[in-house]
Computed example of a mutant assay.
Amino acid sequence: MIRLATKEDLPAVMEIVSRVKSEMKARGSSQWDERYPTIATFETDLNHGELYVEEEDDQIRGICTISVTGHEEYDDIAFHSLHYLTLKRLAVDPKARKQGVALRLIQFAEAEANEKKCDALTTDTFSNNLAAQVFFQSLNFSFVEKRQNPSESTALIYYEKPLFN
C-alpha cells in the first residue's frame, strides 16, 4: 500500500535512507551523502504533503516525494512539458529490492500526475548513479539534458516521462 507519510514514519524513512546511502557509496554514486538528504529534507516534504511511503505488513519498504515543484534549476531545463509533477528522493530499502516497490511508487506518481492533469513526470539523478539511469530508462523516461551543477563535482541527468491523460 502506498500512502502519505506521517511524522511517525520519519525514523523508518531515515533508516532506509541510511541503508541506501551506504549502498550508493559502495556502487560509486555520490548522489546521497551526509549532507543530503537529511531528516529536515523529509520533514519539509512531509509538511508539504508530498512524502509517500510504500508499506507491507506495517513495514515501510520504499519512499518517494511527489512534488508540484521541481528543483530550483528546473525552470532552466528543456523539459517538453510545462505542467508536470516531479519525482524526488525515490528510495527502496535494499532488503525489499526486486519486489516491485520502486515500480509501484513510479506508477503511483504517474497516477497522481494524471489526476492533476499533468502532462509529464520529471526526475533527475547524478551521472554516476547508473542504477537509477537504467531504471528510469526502463520505464520510458526520456533523457532531456545533462548539466553540470556548479556546487557538485558530478553532473545531473534530467528525465521526463510524457503522460497521456
Rank of each mutant, 00 (worst) to 15 (best):
F108S: 06
K98M: 04
S22P: 00
L156R: 07
E145R: 04
V101R: 03
V17A: 07
K95C: 04
N165G: 08
T69W: 07
Q107H: 13
L156H: 09
L51M: 11
V134M: 10
G62V: 07
T6V: 02
P37M: 11
D76Y: 06
K21A: 02
E112Y: 05
L4E: 06
L82T: 14
H48R: 14
N114R: 15
Y84C: 01
L87C: 10
D75K: 10
A131F: 06
P94A: 10
Q133M: 15
R27E: 12
G62W: 07
L90V: 15
K7I: 12
K95R: 13
A102G: 12
L139A: 02
A78M: 08
S81V: 10
D124A: 06
A109K: 07
S153R: 11
A120W: 04
T41W: 00
A40E: 09
A12Y: 04
T65A: 14
F126T: 06
T65I: 02
G49D: 02
Q59N: 05
E145K: 05
L139W: 04
Q133E: 14
H48S: 09
L85D: 05
F135R: 04
P162K: 15
P11Y: 07
N47E: 15
Y84H: 10
R89K: 15
K88V: 09
E54N: 04
T38R: 08
E112R: 11
R147L: 09
R104T: 06
V17H: 01
E54R: 02
R61N: 07
E23C: 01
F42W: 02
F79M: 12
I2E: 00
E152I: 00
D9C: 03
S30Y: 03
Y52S: 03
F141Q: 02
A111T: 08
E15D: 15
E55D: 03
H83Q: 11
Q148H: 13
I39C: 10
S22G: 05
V17N: 01
I60D: 04
T86F: 13
K117E: 13
D33Y: 00
T86D: 09
V68L: 08
E34Y: 01
I66Y: 01
Q31E: 15
T125M: 09
E15S: 13
D58L: 09
R97G: 12
Q148S: 10
Y159C: 04
M14C: 06
Y158M: 08
G62L: 11
R61T: 02
V144T: 13
T125R: 08
A78E: 15
L163K: 08
N47L: 12
N128E: 13
Y158E: 10
F135V: 03
E55T: 03
F108D: 04
D57H: 06
Q59M: 10
M24H: 08
E43T: 09
I77H: 03
G70N: 09
R19E: 14
P162S: 14
E15F: 01
V17P: 04
S151F: 08
V20W: 01
A132F: 11
N140V: 02
E56G: 02
C64E: 02
M14V: 07
S151V: 12
I60N: 00
R61F: 00
K116H: 13
